[in-house]
């Protein structure tokens, strides 16, 4: 309970910073008026309403989605280095959108954004196969390098497509960079809905995923059907990652650093861990985004770069603790 309150407070602080801090500073009064007594003539209120509120919502969706997706992935693959970004699920979602945007000629409609879901589904299915979700587990080196390969393959394909059609560089800028800056032109409401659906599936399936982690035979004995549980996990990861990529583009490392922190606070109960992951993921992405807007103001550093700068050292820390053969 204590950790839940603490995280909720942290998230509230991150939300306030997102709304109030920036090139155009705003006060709590401005925020109040922007929401309840909007005056289009006041620049502070306009910035809050048209730029920072969408940014906040996109951050909440992407942060919660990637945090929870990472938690589910680590639970299913029993691998502390699993992350939707590092394992290529984000790249799969982005790839599908780029192809869709190229074929249709649009770059910012809700229909195109929805293509993240089939893309994420295919990539996570590939990860499950490579990660040996059926039968034994894959070691961290194999899973991580499989992700490196999948990412390299998809990003090379994206680059080849993009660079050969110069008019679509905008498509690339819009979909293949992890950033909250274009949040106002993303289908936020729709993606909030799909994220919610994914979280419900994850929360319902959580106890069975934990049973599965004990081993397939034992899980069967406890009355779970491994195939169905894995399908549910796949659906949850797809919905959560797809929503995140649709609002913020591919952002790596969030799903890596959130779960171990949440796990400790949740005392290894997956359902609790999921809820804490959502709060923590959203708080971290909003804080990283605010930091990225401040350090080089008036320019900004994309949030995907910020999470990578924080996440890569965390990756090394986690990797150092692993031993060959162990599946932690």
């Amino acid at each position: 309970m204590k950790s839940l309150t603490g995280l909720a407070l942290l998230l509230a602080l991150a939300m306030a910073l997102t709304l109030l801090v920036g090139v155009q500073d705003a006060s709590l009064g401005d925020l109040w008026r922007a929401v309840f007594a909007f005056d289009p003539a006041d620049p502070a209120q306009v910035v809050i309403r048209s730029v920072r509120l969408p940014r906040l919502v996109a951050g909440l969706i992407a942060g919660a989605g990637l945090g929870m997706a990472g938690t589910i992935m680590q639970a299913v693959t029993r691998n502390p280095l699993a992350d939707p970004g590092l394992l290529g699920v984000n790249a799969g979602a982005a790839f599908a959108v780029v192809v869709g945007a190229l074929i249709s000629g649009y770059s910012d409609s809700g229909m195109i954004a929805a293509l993240t879901f089939p893309g994420a589904a295919l990539a996570s299915a590939a990860v499950f196969l490579l990660g040996g979700a059926r039968g034994g587990t894959a070691g961290p080196v194999r899973l991580t390098l499989a992700g490196v390969a999948l990412n390299a393959l998809l990003l090379s394909l994206i680059s080849a497509i993009i660079l050969s059609r110069s008019e679509v560089l905008e498509v690339f800028r819009f979909w293949v960079t992890g950033s909250l800056a274009q949040a106002h032109s993303r289908p936020l409401a729709m993606m909030a809905g799909t994220l919610l659906l994914g979280s419900v599936i994850a929360l319902v399936a959580a106890p069975r995923i934990e049973a599965l982690a004990l081993g397939t035979a034992l899980a069967r004995g406890l009355g779970t059907r491994p195939g169905r549980v894995q399908l549910a996990a796949l659906a949850a990861i797809t919905l959560m990652t797809g929503s995140a990529v649709a609002v913020a583009g591919p952002i790596a490392f969030l799903g890596l650093i959130v779960p171990p922190l949440a796990r400790r606070m949740a005392r290894h109960v997956l359902r609790r861990e999921l809820i804490l992951s959502a709060l923590l993921g959203a708080a971290i992405i909003l804080l990283a985004d605010t930091l990225g807007r401040l350090i080089v103001a008036p320019a900004e550093i994309r949030v995907g770069i910020m999470t990578a700068l924080i996440g890569a050292p965390a990756f090394i820390l986690i990797a150092r603790r692993l031993t060959p053969g162990a599946t932690a």
Binding site: L81, T144, A308, A312, F315, A319, R320
Partner: peptide
Amino acid sequence: LILVGIGVSFF
């Protein structure tokens, strides 16, 4: 060595 190397290349 390989895992840490991958981490360093990410960074």
